[in-house]
Design a protein around this nucleic acid. Structure first.
Lengths: 111, 111
DNA sequence: TATAAATGGAACCTTTTGGTTGCACAAATT
DNA sequence: AATTTGTGCAACCAAAAGGTTCCATTTATA
């Protein structure tokens, strides 16, 4: 059973769950209430999110609150950002700017 | 058949394929050569990547080159970045700085 | 104390996923 | 012309994913 962040966020329901609890923790029933599928189905999604560290459960009486650990998304962010240089226009112009600077410095050196 | 970028990058093999062709396009056999699984299995992964726009195929004689379209990762980046305010320490200190400024301005106003 | 509410999880089912082998076909080589 | 190379795809398979219903258990409440 592979449980990594990439696989966890692949499912749209799980992304929606994360969005719901991003601002405030909710108990399992509150989360399940927002979906058409059964509570058990939602519970399974929450479980997967906890297994990869994106969510932690906090017991409180008979309720269990789901708390988002969004810093785990760092893994995804890091992975994506390593490729930004291949497509981001802003980075392109930064590179152009830097290479222009280099050219200019060389010219200055030649003076 | 759901074919979105999130689902496409959920598989580690597909992420590795993207990494292989990020710098230079490779034909299907070249890509397949780097994996233990069959060429057909790799071809299927490439097909999924093309179906969500992360890769385009360019015919060249009898070969077909796989070219990465990494700007598609923008969707992932945008999704992740909307949550950064919940966990990024740098952003935290920026917020602290801004609220300090506010406090200071209020104090100045009271003088 | 009896009942309702909130949850975890077993058992089961269907669809999707990731893999295989084998074959067909076009392009390049001998 | 015959053969090798690169590829696409059908057919098939096992395992995983995503869903269901039903039941057990614990905690709150009438």
């Amino acid at each position: 059973m592979r449980r990594d962040v990439f696989q966890a966020i692949a499912d749209p329901t799980r992304r929606e769950i994360l969005n719901m609890i991003a601002h405030e923790s909710l108990n399992v029933n509150a989360v399940a209430g927002h979906f058409d599928v059964s509570r058990t189905a939602v519970y399974k999604h929450v479980k997967i999110l906890t297994e990869c560290g994106l969510v932690v459960m906090k017991q409180q009486g008979r309720e269990r609150f789901c708390e988002a650990k969004l810093e785990k998304l760092n893994e995804v962010s890091d992975w994506v950002e390593q490729y930004r240089k291949f497509w981001d226009a802003r980075l392109d112009s930064l590179e152009n700017y830097l290479s222009e600077l280099q050219t200019k410095n060389k010219e200055d050196g030649n003076k």
